[in-house]
């Protein structure tokens, strides 16, 4: 058997699905952020696979921007998590429902 590019697309989709399931299931905000990273990495793998399929280097460039957005997202997300947990220790994502007006 030969490894075709479609296999990478399938793996990227699987990573995206696992990350999405984890994002919906887990309540620890840190683990939820990690699941978002999983989803982004699935997308990155898909971009690189398409870059190879289409013979277009732009797909690899987009991965750069995804990296930057992921870094910014993690910085702000962890800042929010630290601010929340400092206020109420042991808080989960569900406890934020007290913010509902």
């Amino acid at each position: 058997m030969e490894v075709t590019e479609g296999w990478y697309l399938v793996l990227g989709a699987l990573l995206f699905i696992i990350g999405g399931i984890g994002l919906l299931l887990r309540r620890n905000p840190l683990v939820m952020l990690m699941c978002v990273e999983l989803m982004l990495n699935g997308v990155n793998l898909t971009f690189v696979a398409f870059s190879r399929i289409l013979g277009d280097v732009a797909g690899q460039t987009v991965v750069f921007f995804v990296l930057v957005v992921a870094a910014a997202e993690v910085v702000v997300g962890l800042g929010i998590v630290v601010a929340i947990v400092r206020r109420s220790p042991g808080a989960t994502a569900d406890d934020l429902s007290v913010m509902k007006g």
Binding site: L11, L14, L15, I18, V31, L38
Partner: peptide
């Protein structure tokens, strides 16, 4: 990849 992803969850 997949073992790690399931492990994260």
């Amino acid at each position: 990849c997949l073992v790690g992803a399931v492990g994260v969850v």
